[in-house]
Amino acid sequence: MSIDTNNNLIFHYLLRDTLCYLTLTEQSYPKRLAFLYLEEIADAFLESLANDHGDRWREAVDTTARPYAFIKFEQVIQRKRKDFIDPTSRQNTTKLNEDLADIQSIMRTNINEVLNRGEKLENVSNISNNLVAESKKFKWGAKKLSWQAMVNQYAPIVVMVVFVLFVLYMKFFW
């Protein structure tokens, strides 16, 4: 995140692994380059901590009592600061272009995933429409089968009753 101080200076900070990395730049300094600087500082600091303390580096940071316990890392910070001091340098321009290329690649991947999801949603929609049509056919078939079952069950009885009534009618009314 960046915090504007209203006097042409901006604080940029990065939180990573419960540690806060902070830098102060002029307002004209590119934000993305400031964050690239903080990311490089964070990577180098975490690597230094891992080299010095192994897997227990978090404990070393949590239990540090002295204000300047990690002062030996100052040399690395100064080297990185020199690398990033001129935002128009070829090296920094290259870093920004690489970062933009990475972001562009990620965005392309995201767009492709969204398009694939759209195609998948369209397939699901087609399948659901097919299911609705098939269920209507099934409903009609089920009604037809139910009617046929009822006819098969009661038709012989009805035919027998009609026959008996016909015979009785013929016997008594003819």
Rank of each mutant, 00 (worst) to 15 (best):
M1S: 06
M1T: 07
M1D: 09
S2E: 02
D4S: 07
N7M: 05
L9D: 06
I10F: 04
H12W: 01
H12P: 00
Y13E: 02
L15P: 00
D17Q: 14
D17P: 00
D17Y: 05
L19F: 03
Y21W: 01
L24Y: 07
T25H: 09
T25V: 12
E26R: 10
P30W: 08
P30T: 04
K31E: 14
R32C: 01
R32F: 02
R32V: 05
R32S: 10
L33A: 08
L33T: 07
A34Y: 05
F35C: 05
E39G: 13
E39A: 13
E40C: 13
I41W: 01
A42C: 08
E47Q: 13
E47M: 12
E47F: 11
S48V: 03
L49S: 06
N51M: 13
D52S: 15
H53E: 01
G54V: 00
D55E: 14
R56N: 14
W57D: 05
R58S: 09
A60P: 02
D62I: 03
D62E: 10
D62R: 09
T63P: 00
T63S: 15
T64A: 15
T64P: 03
T64M: 11
A65S: 05
P67I: 01
Y68A: 06
Y68N: 08
A69M: 07
I71M: 04
K72G: 10
K72L: 07
K72S: 13
F73A: 06
F73R: 07
F73W: 03
E74H: 08
Q75N: 04
V76W: 00
R79G: 03
R79D: 13
R81S: 09
R81M: 08
K82F: 04
D83I: 05
F84D: 00
P87Q: 06
P87C: 06
T88A: 00
S89R: 08
R90N: 12
R90V: 12
Q91I: 14
Q91M: 11
N92E: 08
K95Y: 02
L96V: 08
D99F: 11
L100G: 06
L100D: 11
A101F: 00
D102C: 13
I103D: 10
I106Y: 09
I106Q: 15
M107I: 15
N110C: 14
I111C: 02
I111Y: 12
I111W: 05
L115K: 13
L115V: 13
R117M: 04
E119H: 09
E119K: 10
E122K: 08
E122R: 07
E122F: 00
E122V: 03
N123W: 02
S125A: 12
N126D: 15
N129D: 15
V132G: 00
V132F: 02
V132I: 07
A133P: 03
A133T: 05
E134L: 14
S135M: 01
F138S: 12
K144H: 12
K144R: 13
L145I: 09
Q148I: 10
Q148N: 05
A149L: 15
A149P: 08
V151N: 00
N152W: 11
Q153G: 04
Q153E: 14
Q153N: 12
Y154M: 00
Y154N: 06
V158L: 10
V159G: 07
M160W: 09
V161L: 14
V162N: 14
V162D: 13
F163V: 06
V164K: 15
V164M: 14
V164G: 07
L165Q: 13
L168I: 11
M170S: 15
M170K: 15
F172D: 14
F173A: 13
F173C: 13
W174A: 08
